[in-house]
Amino acid sequence: MTPTKITLAATTALVTAGLAGAAAAQEYTIGITQNNVGVDSYQTTYEQAFIEAAEANENVEVVVLDAGGDVARQIAQVEDLIQQEVDAIIIWPTNGEAVIPAVRKASQADIPVIVTNSNIAEPGFDFVASFSGPDNITQGARSAEIMCDRFTELGIQDEAQIVQISGQPGYTTAIERAQGFEDRLPEVCPNVTLMETQPGDWNREKSQQVMEAFLVKYDDIDGVYAGDDNMGVGALNAARAAGRSEDIVFVGATNFAVGYEAMGEGDYWGSIYQSPVDDAEAALQTALDVLNGEDVPFLNYFDTPKITQDNMDEFEKPVF
């Protein structure tokens, strides 16, 4: 299987034109292998933003790959980028554990690896130059605070029962957001009961099916925490169809446009504001900083604030 490769922006013409005007500038070739571009609008927008950021830098050539959610394909893509002798590799891991051997190979080939959006598992940290993305544990914790604050406003903080729809199993972002939520909720609302967690795989339709099963199983659901708004709106759609949405507090993370719209309609309470454009631009810049020998923190986080119906007017509608 040969990975699809996109070398951007009429690469030769772009780079040559740039170097003609700045002969002393360092030219870099950077490869990126993404998780699954077609699975949701966040990843689609991320790829577009990454390409635009690369096109804007006349001294950067990039090879853009998509693993399509397939771990084996992503490992093959990393190995292909190593064979191409790119200057740096950016990886959005399909699975934080499974990609470690491939990342190790890149490190052994003296190619710096930047992990983007979702970190690899800790045993692979020695082979990574930097992680660029959101602090997903903090995101989960902030979502727990949003939910607890809302329950307190409603006076049900000592009796509320909730369910959780998590992301793709084995995926670091899913694990960390669930961990952050589950660790923080008992600290702020110790009497809230988390009845069950099921994966929604970042997919709206699957999350709707998960929520339909929850609604059949549990007569009393006061809140739903979803690992992103795509899944959260899937859960909301199930509750709407069952006539139970008005009785449930929906809280997500990564505020999608559909989540923002549902908040505006009064059906979805809150989320965490995260921009795929910021995410993509930060990944490319982190790679360039590493290649230029700058001092880059290992965990290079960008901020992701809370957004609820109360303060959503302070934020622009997400572009994804």
Rank of each mutant, 00 (worst) to 15 (best):
V39W: 04
V39L: 13
V39M: 11
D40Q: 12
D40V: 13
Y42H: 05
Y42M: 06
Y42F: 15
Y42E: 03
Q43W: 08
Q43C: 02
T44N: 08
Y46F: 15
Y46Q: 02
Y46G: 00
Y46W: 09
E47C: 08
Q48W: 07
Q48K: 14
A49D: 10
A49I: 12
A49R: 10
F50Q: 06
I51V: 15
A53L: 07
A54G: 12
A54R: 13
E55I: 13
E55F: 08
E55H: 12
E55N: 14
N57H: 07
N57F: 02
N57A: 08
N57Q: 10
E58G: 13
V60E: 09
E61G: 06
E61Y: 06
E61S: 14
V62M: 14
V63F: 10
V63I: 15
V63S: 03
L65E: 10
D66T: 11
A67Q: 03
G68E: 02
G69R: 09
G69S: 04
G69H: 07
D70M: 00
D70N: 15
D70I: 13
D70V: 14
V71L: 05
V71A: 07
A72Q: 04
A72E: 10
A72F: 02
R73T: 14
R73P: 00
Q74W: 03
Q74I: 05
I75N: 03
I75M: 02
A76G: 02
A76I: 04
Q77L: 06
Q77I: 06
V78C: 04
D80V: 07
L81V: 09
L81A: 08
L81Y: 10
L81C: 10
I82N: 02
I82M: 05
Q84Y: 09
Q84R: 15
V86C: 08
D87G: 05
D87H: 05
D87E: 06
A88S: 14
A88E: 07
I89F: 11
I89L: 11
I89C: 10
I91G: 03
I91T: 15
W92H: 14
W92K: 11
T94F: 06
N95I: 06
N95V: 10
G96S: 10
A98V: 06
A98R: 08
A98E: 10
V99I: 15
V99G: 07
I100F: 02
I100V: 14
I100K: 04
P101W: 00
A102M: 02
A102C: 00
A102G: 01
R104A: 15
K105N: 15
K105D: 15
